[in-house]
Design a protein around this nucleic acid. Structure first.
Lengths: 200, 200
DNA sequence: TTTTTGATTGAATGATCAATCAAGTGCGGT
DNA sequence: ACCGCACTTGATTGATCATTCAATCAAAAA
């Protein structure tokens, strides 16, 4: 199988879906940008929806190399890692003038009644993200109260990221992102203080 | 001006945009559902986008009667009000099998490069929501640390709502909503405990 | 009564959409 | 040399899209 063309389609679709969304991206947008002809696209994919599936599978398979390794370069402390991850999205927002938010979050809200496979892939992408944050929390387990529900807090961090991006993008104001992250930081500090009290 | 037809169009569009989103709702969807003919729609609105503008203006104008009064029925305590508001979205999510999330949040993420007027209306809707929560926090100002940034916490509450809906809807799992709200509740309790320490 | 005005009707338009397909190309195997 | 097959080309299809418009209606104003 000629992987080059297939991959060119996926990479182009990844970018277009990210910036314009799924519905607003036409198949011919993908074709003209990727310099591929319609017959080739339909040779590899039964339809537009299957391109989306391939895109979501790629995000799922590349979370480590495409996101985490990049955001965590030079960061060792597990708690710092969490905020480094958030800061990655902040940087993207700023450097693209609020055009690039979270590709998964945007798609999740855009596709209201998605195919079960698509919903599952979206959920899986969220899940992997939460897993990564949960791992950080587990690494730092001795700094948090024993009773902490680490999974719930990891899900909470995803929520902050998505909500902060949504608000900052809508208002074109990075302050909305920063204040949200600051409140999260305050919460995490409070949890750590609580643990210190437990230890003493 | 015949307000009846115009209003029928807006109400129908409100519902369709909420469930299907803006792009996935065709003008003929609005026409057939509202039993209005295309000429009438274009008599009142220059185009589809102007229907969206009217919808967003309606949300903006009716936040009190359409959302707050409903969610806060029989709730007096300002802190309870915040969670009652969140619970309103939870109820909608459940009773519609995850079809109805937050209409503003969905539109905000779906419209990637919106007309400035639309972006402004989306921001205004978020802003009014945050204002309402901030007012609750001000009513309860004596229960929170003096240094509390009430605006930031109100924005944070909106973030939780949007993020929690996004995750619960994607996974079709209300647990994701509930756990997010529980973490927020934990944070607010911690803030209140902090205030008690200040007072003693 | 006649005119004016706002609202309605619904067929028609052209653009754009996702998807199709028959004809071709190039290459590895025999 | 020949074949088989994966891939490419690009014109074409039919559906659907937002929008237009001339004709019509109803009721108030003149």
């Amino acid at each position: 199988m000629n992987t080059a063309t297939r991959d060119k389609i996926i990479r182009t679709a990844m970018d277009l879906f990210w910036v314009k969304g799924y519905q607003s991206t036409s198949v011919s947008d993908i074709l003209s940008r990727s310099q591929v002809h319609s017959g080739s696209l339909y040779h590899f994919f039964p339809g537009k929806q299957d391109v989306l599936i391939a895109v979501l599978e790629t995000y799922r398979d590349e979370i480590e190399v495409g996101l985490l390794n990049y955001a965590w370069e030079g960061v060792d402390d597990p708690v710092d890692k969490i905020f480094a991850l958030l800061n990655g999205y902040r940087t993207h927002l700023l450097s693209t003038e609020y055009q690039y938010g979270c590709p998964i979050g945007s798609l999740a809200l855009e596709l209201h009644e998605p195919d079960p496979r698509i919903r599952e892939l979206l959920a899986m992408n969220f899940n992997n993200w939460v897993d990564a944050v949960e791992l950080c929390l587990e690494e730092a387990t001795d700094r948090f109260p024993e009773s902490l529900d680490r999974r719930a807090l990891a899900e909470f961090v995803l929520t902050i990221m998505e909500g902060a991006i949504m608000q900052a993008r809508t208002a074109h104001d990075i302050g909305l992102f920063d204040r949200n992250v600051e409140v999260l930081r305050g919460h995490i500090k409070l949890l750590m203080t609580q643990r210190e009290l437990e230890d003493s």
